[in-house]
């Protein structure tokens, strides 16, 4: 496992605390509703969605469906880049029609990932309402999109990178801010394009 240097934004304990708070907010808003579901955006939205889901289920005392959304096919930069991003399966085995959905992602940045995710959801059905939960909102939006549930809002420079490291994906648990001179941690970064699903991305 590779260690990443950089300014610490959140510790494991803080992440845990924040997720508990967000789950409570979701329960407060949607709890009374019969049909709602949580959908994680690949990749780091998925473990976050799973954790939120568990906390919500504990609170409402009924199963809450969890879906996984791969937004690759809906990216708006597919024409611009040469290499094709790795495609993974979308796994939503329930009907999203007339259901309230909470989309979950790790970092909200330009808003393009969420735009892609919304397009993807529309192709799958007609949800009653879609809300957005993110662990970190780092600003610099390029589209009129905002989150309904935010773990932490941080001030960043445009050329900095926010890295969310999760036990399930990365073997460690924290959020760090990387300066422009530091190499981005991911290898998935597209040539000349911001890579979605990552703190430094869309």
């Amino acid at each position: 496992m590779r260690k990443i240097k950089g300014k610490s934004l959140m510790t494991a304990a803080e992440i845990d605390l924040v997720l508990t708070r967000m789950a409570a907010e979701i329960v407060e808003k949607l709890g009374p509703e019969e049909a709602f579901a949580v959908i994680g955006i690949r990749r780091r939205g998925v473990p976050l969605a799973r954790r939120l889901c568990r906390r919500i289920e504990a609170a409402v005392k009924r199963p809450v469906p969890l879906g996984i959304l791969d937004i690759t096919l809906y990216r708006d930069d597919l024409t611009a880049i040469g290499n094709r991003p790795m495609l993974r399966e979308t796994l939503i085995d329930f009907d999203i029609d007339n259901r309230s959905l909470v989309l979950v992602d790790d970092v909200l940045y330009t808003g393009r990932t969420i735009r892609s995710a919304l397009d993807g959801l529309v192709d799958l059905g007609r949800p009653r309402r879609v809300q957005l939960a993110v662990l970190v909102d780092r600003g610099h939006r390029e589209l009129p999109i905002q989150a309904d549930y935010v773990g932490k809002t941080v001030q960043t420079e445009e050329d900095e990178t926010v890295e969310v490291r999760l036990e399930e994906e990365d073997g460690e648990e924290r959020v760090v801010l990387l300066g422009k001179t530091q190499p981005a941690a991911g290898t998935r970064k597209a040539r000349g394009a911001k890579s979605p699903g990552r703190g430094g991305g869309a």
Binding site: L87, R88, D123
Partner: peptide
């Protein structure tokens, strides 16, 4: 093969179309 496996889901949808 992995990509094809991921794409099989599209043909199972009600709206069998993605904008890739």
């Amino acid at each position: 093969l992995d990509t094809a496996e991921a794409l099989r889901e599209v043909s199972a949808r009600a709206v069998k179309k993605v904008p890739a």
